[in-house]
Amino acid sequence: MPKDAIEANVTKNYGKTTILDHVNLSLKRGEIFGLLGPSGSGKTTLVKLLCGIEEASDGEVKVLDTKMPNLSMMKKVGYMAQADALYGELTAYENLKFFATLSGVHRRDQKERIIEVMQLVNLENELQKKVEDFSGGMKRRLSLAIALLHNPDILLLDEPTVGIDPSLRQKIWWTFEKLRSNGVLILVTTHVMDEAERCSRLGMIRNGQLIAVGTPDELKKQTDSVTIEEAFLSFGGGVE
Rank of each mutant, 00 (worst) to 15 (best):
K221W: 08
D194M: 14
A196S: 13
F232H: 06
G236N: 13
E218D: 12
P216E: 00
E230R: 04
M193S: 08
T189E: 05
M204K: 05
S225G: 10
G203D: 02
K221P: 11
N207W: 14
E197K: 11
I211Y: 06
F235M: 03
K220C: 12
V192S: 15
D224W: 09
E195R: 00
S225E: 06
T189S: 15
G203K: 07
R206D: 07
S225H: 02
F235V: 07
I205C: 10
G238E: 04
C199A: 14
R198I: 10
D217H: 09
F235L: 00
Q209A: 04
F232I: 06
I211H: 05
D194F: 04
E195K: 00
E195Y: 00
R198A: 09
L219P: 13
S200D: 11
K220A: 02
T227I: 09
L219M: 09
S225A: 12
E218S: 13
R206Q: 13
C199V: 11
M193Q: 04
G237W: 00
R198W: 13
G203F: 00
E230K: 07
E197V: 11
A212Y: 00
M193R: 08
T215Q: 11
L202P: 15
E195I: 01
M193L: 15
P216S: 00
R198T: 09
G208P: 01
G238S: 03
Q222A: 11
T190D: 08
Q222E: 13
E195L: 14
L233M: 09
V192T: 07
Q222P: 07
Q222V: 09
M204C: 12
R206V: 15
L202V: 05
M193K: 05
S200H: 04
M204Q: 00
E197R: 06
I205F: 15
G203V: 02
A196E: 01
G236W: 13
F235Q: 05
G237H: 04
T190L: 11
T189Q: 03
V226I: 12
L210I: 07
D217V: 13
S200M: 00
I205R: 13
D224N: 14
Q209R: 15
E197T: 04
C199R: 05
T215D: 10
G214A: 06
E218P: 11
R201F: 02
K220Y: 06
G214H: 04
A231R: 02
H191Q: 15
N207L: 10
F232E: 10
H191M: 14
E230D: 07
F232L: 02
I211C: 02
D194H: 07
D224S: 10
G214I: 03
Q209K: 15
T227S: 15
A196P: 13
E230N: 01
G214V: 01
M193F: 13
I211W: 07
I211K: 01
L210A: 02
S225Q: 06
L210R: 02
C199L: 02
A231E: 01
L233N: 15
G236A: 03
G208N: 09
M193N: 05
E229S: 02
N207I: 14
G203C: 08
F235A: 01
A196V: 05
I205N: 08
R198Q: 14
S234I: 03
A196Y: 06
F232T: 01
S200E: 00
G203Q: 03
A231Y: 05
R206W: 11
L219D: 14
E229K: 13
F235W: 05
K221S: 15
K220S: 09
T190R: 04
K220Q: 08
E229Y: 01
A212D: 06
